[in-house]
Nucleic acid binder design. Structure first.
Lengths: 219, 219
DNA sequence: GTCTATATACGGATAGAC
DNA sequence: GTCTATCCGTATATAGAC
């Protein structure tokens, strides 16, 4: 679109109050689409409708921009660290675990999470910070949260997971949720299943078969 | 090292009967160390003690070389698709599963497997072939093999996994083996544990608590 | 087949005008 | 702060001698 170079105090090309955010948004798209290496600052500039020089006015260099992008995106996707009400007030361990499995799996398998995961894994050896950030915002709090929930459910007599086992069970549970679908998505292999319910059903069955309370205390 | 350009019929730089293999070996090292993007043909040439032109005399281009490297390395690491004797002739499901868990985990967490995994995940969107190759040689046969073993153990009365559940249980089992260690290694995060036995113990416990035979048929 | 030297392109980063 | 234009290193790939 061609427009005359009118002399105004708010020229469109300069007015944008926050090029900063625009650049960040564009960088998120580009980095997640193309990966760190294949992404070029030119591409980011084009996507943000900004010149390359402007990017360097706002950010130190490509790597710094990348780290900011990963940090922001991780928090946005994995930010939630609360224990959901349906677990805190659950009367039935199976229902609570089953719903939890569904919701956590949805996050883990979301296109956004997969894209971040992929890019971070790719660059982890050369940009260790992003690996740390991802783990600190994603898997680490997820494990802690799961462990807390297992302990809570146990304290309330709905489950019987020994304190020493809780972190191990949390770890196993989290990995069962990923399933083959996670592997396939990371590898870009076509999924062989659309309905994950049977898998999650069995996963919860495994936990309960081993750690259901003995009913001695509850009746 | 500087040596005179002697005119011989077997100059050291030219004699190497199979530069081809030398280049492939060098490329394996470079690609697995640096990733596809960061690896340069110059680096491969230097590692192989060969000129770049020689590489292009043997291989079409960087991408083709990369695909060959991945293919070769995957087969070397994941090649084994046999059912081990200790499973085929097992008398005790727990012992068999436990040992199987150990051995599969060792392969999955080996530095080689992690390096391939990382590189393949990184390039999967741009070089889909490598994702397919990796999955076809790694996870896919592993799942098939596990499913077969579960069915075998069930047929022999050592386990009671319904036919319909077997693939699901195999999938859950394989993912439990990975554990947090796999995630951490891919992300380049320091491990928080060196002894994986407790985790694998619990994993096998879960399977057996749910699928141990009822003893009705066996006594 | 193998080398040296080079064509050609692209990408990160900056200089300087406004 | 933002732009245009450019520097400069590096990377893939090839030409041409031997």
């Amino acid at each position: 679109m061609s427009r005359p170079k009118k002399i105004t105090d708010t020229p469109e090309a300069t007015i944008t109050p926050s090029k900063h955010d625009g650049i960040l948004a564009a960088a998120q798209e580009i980095f997640l689409e193309m990966g760190y290496g294949a992404a070029s600052m030119d591409a980011v500039a084009a996507r943000a409708n900004v010149s390359k020089a402007t990017i360097y006015a706002h950010f130190d260099n490509k790597r710094a921009l990348f780290e900011l992008v990963i940090q922001g995106r991780c928090q946005r996707v994995f930010g939630n660290d609360d224990i959901p009400l349906y677990v805190a007030e659950a009367q039935d361990a199976r229902a609570a675990l089953r719903r939890l499995a569904d919701e956590m799996q949805t996050v883990i398998l979301s296109p956004d999470a997969i894209a971040i995961n992929r890019v971070v894994v790719a660059e982890a050896p050369r940009v260790p910070e992003v690996g740390e950030i991802f783990y600190a915002v994603g898997p680490n709090p997820a494990l802690a949260r799961l462990t807390r929930m297992l302990n809570d459910l146990t304290r309330r007599g709905l489950l019987a997971v020994p304190q020493t086992d809780a972190p191990l069970v949390a770890e196993l549970f989290l990995n069962m949720l990923k399933g083959d679908a996670h592997t396939r998505q990371l590898l870009g292999v076509a999924p062989n299943r659309t309905d994950h319910r049977p898998l999650l059903d069995v996963a919860v069955d495994l936990i309960l078969a081993r750690y259901a309370p003995t009913d001695k205390g509850s009746r």
